[in-house]
Amino acid sequence: MSFFYLLLVTSLFLYRADAGTLSDPEPLTVDSLMERHARAMGGTKAWLRLKSWVITQQRTNGTVIAYAKKPDKFRLDFQLSGRTVTKSYDGKTGWLVVNGTYEAMRPGEAIEMAEEPDFYGELIYAYQRRDAMQVLPSEQLNGHWCYRLELTKSPTDKQWYWLNAETYLIEQTAEYSEDPAHDGILYKTIFEDYRAVDGLMFPRREGLIANDQAPRMWTLDDIQLHRRIPNKFFRYRP
């Protein structure tokens, strides 16, 4: 065997051995993948203890403040096209206030808001609930390999996740909107540049892609965990 042939074989072996970037990652069961994901996110117990969070998002059209209280209370305060808007879900009803005036919220919009408190640790919570999950064939995303996971919350609600094969953190999610106004739109959420906040992993930047449109990106400027938020903060009465 010549030196150059040996060098070529060695190079090809190293190329395939560089798991997570150049070679297809090792097959994992749902249990093994979720164990690694939860550990990378800061641990299952720490996420289950998290009962509330407040996140300030810096977007191109202004600042958005998101308030979440588990299991299903969620509120957004933001400025949009000269309007001051508050969207809130109090656990039973969705509320929409535009420039101080109450408006009806679409049923699908309220359903989506009910899921937001678990948004960052949603896979951990879904696994604890024993929602149906399956590992799909791995794919390359942004130049590296990702595990693909399918989550079935209900017969009409499926979501897909791409987990980085090196870090086991979520790179991207995808789901069809449950809001009738957005019927048929596949929304993808991008997560970039994770960092630890009180031991739990949150992205510094997020983005949203609607079908094949260019992503809209924003920065998570401030994250506060375990805030005491009264229940009435999420409720409005016309």
Rank of each mutant, 00 (worst) to 15 (best):
S2T: 13
F3V: 14
Y5F: 14
Y5A: 15
L6W: 12
L6N: 13
L12Q: 14
F13I: 11
L14G: 12
A17F: 07
D18M: 04
T21C: 03
S23V: 04
P25V: 10
S32V: 07
S32A: 11
M34F: 03
H37G: 08
K45N: 02
L48E: 04
L48K: 13
R59L: 06
R59A: 02
T60S: 09
G62C: 00
K69T: 01
K69C: 00
K70Q: 02
F78G: 00
L80T: 08
Y89V: 11
D90E: 05
T93M: 04
G94D: 01
W95E: 01
Y102P: 12
E103W: 06
A104P: 07
A104T: 12
I111K: 15
A114H: 04
G121L: 10
E122F: 12
Y125C: 07
Q128E: 09
Q128F: 02
C146A: 15
Y147F: 15
R148S: 05
T152Q: 09
K153W: 04
T156Q: 15
T156Y: 12
D157C: 10
W160H: 00
W160L: 02
Y161D: 04
A165S: 04
E171L: 01
Q172K: 01
A181S: 14
G184D: 00
G184L: 02
F191Q: 02
A196P: 00
V197T: 13
D198E: 12
G199T: 14
I209Y: 09
P215H: 12
M217Y: 15
N231R: 12
K232C: 04
F234K: 07
R235T: 10
P238W: 03
